[in-house]
Design a protein around this nucleic acid. Structure first.
Length: 431
RNA sequence: GGGGAGUUUCCCGAGCGGUCAAAGGGGUCAGACUGUAAAUCUGAUGGAUUUUUCCUUCGCAGGUUCGAAUCCUGCACUCCCCA
């Protein structure tokens, strides 16, 4: 199972900067080495931007080493200035506790997920830096850590320089962030003999601060690797959409939307995502690259990408749900589903409650249902949509503007699915 | 301080007393095509009604007129030129 992690990372385009590659290779030539990546609990869920690091840890395990995921319970109280243009707002203790719990659950789930091919459970560690920072006194910290970090070095970091040049500047608190992260690294090298830290390219300054501190305090050689930020071909960050970030928590981003995000990745970006985010072998990657060039319309790459990642994050059940929803959103008439299935599939879709009695007798005017659910701005717009063939009930086109909805139109016991155009759905519930 | 130009529907922009809910473009929404892509093509695009009319809209407030986005007066704001 052991293979050369560094070469694999290089082949997949995962290395942006690293400390001396030869020394790093040498250290990693022995199985069971510990490698860590940190995650600050800035929200109660991680998002797609964290996926590279999470997958990186899985690769570490896959290569026969032991991944260490560090949750920044302490550093999260401060806020990392790296890659940020403004001072962060501090989180309340309650928020922070909830965030830590959520993030920890996700990290464990992903490290333990048997998606892909490493079905055997390898040893892994999840630690929280609050556990060792909490008891440390301020004076003690200044004497033991601060004393060994030259100000010139701190001021030289890009994360600090760029902020100092801006109007907002940065506070002493955020300035100190890198000391905490540096100490984390040294602490993990003490407690777990963890000597390698990986992170996004914006973490280089913080990682090198830790390496430097390790040399000064312990005369110990530590290593660091950063991976390039995953960006789209247009230069924007991966995982951001017009409607916000793509989260890993199904309550924030449904498995369907998560799946769809990857299905819709540009051809230009698909290869890079596959290489960096999936466990596919280099041969499989080359194969998909060739297929994509020859037959872009088949979109094998996107399908594989969506499948791998949805399974990793949401499990087989999540993948199945996403696929079922996909079929419905792009396909056939809706029937044979019960209320709860519909509720699940259309979790992201706006819904509106109606009194059941409106379906009796003549029924509810379709046009009225379209405006009431917000699918149309006005009755005129609704009429237009219907007349132009853009209105669907349970995915069946209704082109008669005088159509009235009755109990016959219900897709399940009390639910009816309205659609305008290709993608705009709304759920009407009749209680 | 003096002189000039302007303010139009989501945006840009035409309109110069009735035929103006207001050209054209962009955007948006539908349809066709397609790879759930890009491009292209078609239709629609103030509100209510449904085919007939009504209501609201052209910086704001008044006025002239049978009739004003269009003319007049005042006010507000924007831009340009000369000191």
């Amino acid at each position: 199972m052991t293979h050369d992690l560094v070469s694999d990372f290089q082949a997949r385009g995962l290395i942006h900067q690293s400390t001396d590659a030869a020394r790093l290779r040498e250290w990693l030539s022995v199985p069971g080495r510990r490698v860590y990546a940190g995650f600050d609990p800035t929200a109660d869920s991680l998002h797609v931007g964290h996926l590279v690091a999470l997958v990186l840890l899985r690769r570490v395990a896959h290569a026969g080493h032991e991944p260490v995921a560090l949750i920044g319970g302490a550093t999260g109280m401060i806020g990392d200035p790296s890659g940020r243009s403004e001072e962060r707002n501090l989180l309340s203790p309650d928020e922070l506790a909830a965030n830590i719990a959520g993030v920890e659950r996700q990290i464990r789930a992903i490290l333990l997920s048997d998606a892909g091919n490493n079905s055997h459970v390898t040893p892994h560690h999840v630690v929280n830096n609050a556990d060792w920072m909490r008891g440390v006194g301020y004076l003690e910290f200044l004497r033991d850590v601060g004393k060994h970090v030259p100000l010139s070095q701190m001021l030289g970091k890009d994360s600090v320089k760029s902020r100092l040049e801006r109007d907002g500047g940065l506070s002493y608190t955020e300035f100190s962030y890198m000391l905490l992260q540096a100490w984390d690294f040294v602490h993990l090298s003490d407690s777990l003999d963890c000597r390698v830290q990986i992170g996004g390219s914006d973490q280089w300054g913080n990682i090198t601060a830790g390496i430097e501190l390790g040399r000064r305090l312990r005369s110990r050689e530590l290593h660091g690797i950063t991976c390039p930020l995953l960006t789209k071909s247009d230069g924007t960050k991966m995982g951001k959409t017009a409607s916000g970030a793509i989260w890993l928590d199904p309550r924030r981003t449904s498995p369907y939307r998560f799946y769809q995000y990857w299905i819709n990745v540009d051809d230009d970006d698909a290869g890079r995502c596959l290489a960096r985010l999936t466990p596919l072998s280099l041969d499989e990657l080359a194969d998909l690259d060739a297929k994509r060039a020859a037959q872009p319309a088949a979109r094998d790459s996107q399908k594989r990408l969506a499948e791998e990642l949805t399974r990793l994050v949401h499990g087989d059940g999540g993948l199945a749900a996403a696929r079922q929803a996909t079929e419905i959103f792009f396909g056939a008439e809706i029937g044979q589903l019960d209320d709860s299935q519909l509720a699940e599939i259309f979790a992201d879709v706006p819904s509106r409650e109606f009194s059941r009695s409106v379906l009796d007798g003549e029924g509810l005017l379709l046009i009225e249902a379209l405006t009431d659910t917000g699918l149309a701005q006005s009755r005129g717009a609704a009429r237009r949509t219907v007349e132009q063939g853009g209105a669907y009930v349970n995915n069946r086109r209704i082109a008669d503007p005088a159509h009235r909805l009755t109990t016959n139109d219900l897709a399940s016991a009390s639910t009816l699915v309205l659609r305008s155009g290709k993608k705009s759905y709304a759920i009407a519930r009749f209680q």
